[in-house]
Design a protein around this nucleic acid. Sequence first.
RNA 1: GGUCGGUUCGUCUAGGGGUUAGGACGUAUCCCUUUCACGGAUAAAACACGGGUUCGAUUCCCGUACCGACUACCA
Length: 512
Amino acid sequence: MSREVRVRFAPSPTGALHIGGVRTALYNYLFAKKMGGKFLLRIEDTDQTRFVPGAEEYIKESLEWLGISPVESPWNPGDCGPYRQSERKAMYMQYALDLVEKGHAYYAFDTSEELEAMRERLTAARVVSPQYNSITRTQMKNSLTLPAEEVKARLASGEPYVIRVKIPRNEEVRLNDMIRGWVLVHSSTLDDKVLMKSDGMPTYHLANIVDDHLMTITHVIRGEEWLPSAPLHVLLYRFFGWEDTMPTFAHLPLLLKPDGNGKLSKRDGDKLGFPVFPLNWVDPFSGEKASGFREGGYLPDAFLNFLAFLGWNPGDERELFTLDELVEAFSVERIGKSGTKFDIAKAKWYNEQYLRTKPNSELVDFLTADAKAEGLEVPGDKVEAILNLVKGRVTFPADLWRESKFLISAPTEFDQDVAAKKWNADAAKLLGDYATALDVFEEAFDAATAKSLLESTAESAGIKLGKVMQAVRLAVTGMGGGPDLMEVFAILGTSEVAKRIRFALNTLTIVA
RNA sequence: GGUCGGUUCGUCUAGGGGUUAGGACGUAUCCCUUUCACGGAUAAAACACGGGUUCGAUUCCCGUACCGACUACCA
């Protein structure tokens, strides 16, 4: 009687999806794939006041970027649609009424002022946690306290009301979380949560239970912030009579701020000096911008790998995993319990690893596009050599061009510090000789021949190469550091090297 | 405050009644390199505290401390 595994990612379209949400989506995806099940997405937009245009597209694009798209979603519906709760609005009321009929829920007519007054009263009476519960509901305006006729009249008159769950007074609620084990909570600490709001929309609590049931969700994998309301959800499954198909819960550890404490939040934006969102985002209301990992130069597979390891590990010492390998290695049992601080240095390291192992064919576009942006072109026959020379030195794709620009565009100025320290008569003499030698050099000019020619030139001039190498580099690249110089020479070719040397000879003045 | 959850190097973590407590990032040093990186090697660096249980506890139990989440007609 084992059912097909079906898990869902259920974000609210209230803005950009932050990295914690992305990780939740990833774990859901991995679990579904691992179990040979399905990963679906449901938009939880029951709070119409918090709807943000563009947020849904943002979620879709983020998952697509990472290659973890759901098989059922608002934009690719399966048999359990609609996949937006706002579009399912009509179906919730009957379930709420069912609960009222069964005596597990009731109408409440209290205004927000009355609720506020109740909380103040309780606070003044030093009640530890003022809430609408089995005790206080006896003093409020609801279908439990009001005469049946009055309730009927109020309802008929169109007076606004909510439907609240009637939490039993004295019951032990247990749930077996896949990550945390048994969690016990006493019903007396729960409150009579609103199930249907006065605008006719369900709250999260009702909607997620009804939808998960209707969508035959088998496992609910979500953030730890939901753990406190999980007992309520268990109770609701019981009240509906759906206990035998209740999904198994797994509450993921939170993603914490890298410094100090607290969970990583959307508002952390760029304040931390790195992105907390997958993609760039501009808030349509405030115009506030937040940068994304994608635009920040993180490769999707590297980012995914990094994300997977935030709270999970394979149990052995492997670190680098493709998506398929993650699926293969994944298990909920290996997800940790404690909160995870977000460490951007590790994310960079992953990016470097992926960049280095990527075939050049996947890197070419980064290089040529950046070059083009500056009006320069990388000759096709040099691309391969340039990439090989430079890709071990970069963290982001954009570094590729920054590190190799000097190979395409000759220096027009020289690093002053290096010039002051290293430029001297010996260097100038050697370079002059070398340029002359290059003029008549006809063999294939690779790194090895560039080197032996330089060595023999130095020998005839009676100059120690080691003393002038920095100056040679400076003359040809304008800089004091960079990739292997002889490889650079080989890429540049004899005439370009000679040309650059002569320019340097004419430009740099000997101080010492 | 209350409820719930958590606590192994700075960070991510492995481990689990007897271990030199392992790996990775980061840091430092060395090697490689006629530079800077890459790479390789080495080093410093952790079981929050107090009680039990036990021959033995970092591991199991209890308490304390600390951290966090939740405590809306938000999700």
